[in-house]
Design a protein around this nucleic acid. Sequence first.
RNA 1: GGCCCGUUCGUCUAGUGGUUAGGACUCAUGGUUUUCAUCCAUGCAACAGGGGUUCGAUCCCCCUACGGGCUGCCA
Length: 470
Amino acid sequence: MKKPVVRFAPSPTGYLHIGGARTALFNWLFARQNNGKFLLRIEDTDLERSKIEYVDQIKNALNWLGMDWDDDIIFQSKNNSNHQKVIKELIQSGDAYKCFLTKEELDNLRIQADKNKEVFRVPRTYRDTSEEKQNELIDEGRSYTIRLKVPEGITKFKDLVFGEIIVDNKDLDDFIISRSDGSPTYNFVVAIDDIAMDISHIIRGDDHIANTPKQILVYNALKKNVPIFAHLPMILGSDKKRLSKRHAATNVQEYRDKGFTPDSIINYLSLLGWNPDSNDEIFNINELIKLFNFKQVQKKSAVFDEKKLLWISGQKMKEMTSKDILKEILLIDKAWGKDHNNSYLESVISLTKDRSKNLIDIIDISDIFLINEVNYSDEFKSIMSDQNGTMIIKDFLNAVKIEESWDKQTVEKVFEQIMNQHDIGLGKVMKPLRIAISGISYGPGIFDMMILLGKDLTINRITNAINFYK
RNA sequence: GGCCCGUUCGUCUAGUGGUUAGGACUCAUGGUUUUCAUCCAUGCAACAGGGGUUCGAUCCCCCUACGGGCUGCCA
């Protein structure tokens, strides 16, 4: 195969959302798998809604996800002269024509057709109007659009996902390629730019399937090779509606803030509308590059399920090294653990990561190792007073104080001592101590916690707890 | 209305002209664990409906229903 050239073409009218990220991902995977090019084109022709800050957000989000693009970013608005040139060519070749029908006329015809229960078609009134007549109309001050002459016949293409799609050209109107203000329309520019960029494979959402024949007609009129199409199923919200701003979290940035790593998101996204043809579900990016193919891409739209994302993320936390996790945490919170050295922080992470679903979980659970003062809660008063907790931790404190060394063996020995002394099980001893050193009733193993905190801090916190719960 | 596309557990999906329709997430139950989580085991749970074709259809064909897209001087 000739090295493919693909593009991701978002319009900068909002941040990068999950659906866009998935489209970008499949483009990127395909390009990287085949040593092709992944180009980024910003479709900023909607001047009203396009904003430069959205361009930055899209770039940042792609960068964060690890999808690097080749060459310079292309801004569609900068191709305007080329668009105009091609429009002229098409008029000259007779493949497009000036149409003087007004919006009002068309609206009326539409209403009329609807009333008569007829299928509305744009009339081809001006298709063969002579140049003299056209000039007359222009002199009269009539405005015009430019329409493509849709030829007789059928238009078909073989979609890599959907298979062969055939459309009868008679179901297509002579569609507008240039508005009365001279600006070109979407279905036209997209084809022109893809030609200019030498795009070989167009990979995009399946909401474009119905547009594809029109774009092919533009290619045909210009006698250009039609690229290969691969349409991807949509991603839906839990209400089965197309993912939109109304849904809870659609912004890639939000998932970053929620503590998901790029690796988790990409892994999950890859499984939406695609399957690896195996029972495996956890992949890193390099594996995905190897495995991806259009044959396994689904035609059916997929519902975004945050629960599954969470599970994948949890699996990733377990398999990532503490060092790498620390790096990721620092990316979302520069100040995290700033009072401690990296080796301590990595030890903290190694105690918390297996019980965490994402980075934010780790940060939350790790808090007890980073704070200066434990926040004790009244909620545990009964354990401390009624269940003899205060006595236990006092005895533990005294026993620990006389110990010379501080390692797991020593701590376990002291625990045993207290268990015998009070004639109770480990659970009963552990609970009040856990609360004393962390302020909460759950978390990493109590021995591990004490060892990591160190003897001084352990003593210190138990003392504070005794004072608080006395 | 017209054209195009889709429909397997709640969700993501595998699958084949003959299967106990498989896996994963979720959920439930049990177990391991010093707590929580993890982990392990078990369980609940699906071929949209109707016609054909066929000895036999989840699978092939047709229709219907439902959902989506396009039908714009939006992208």
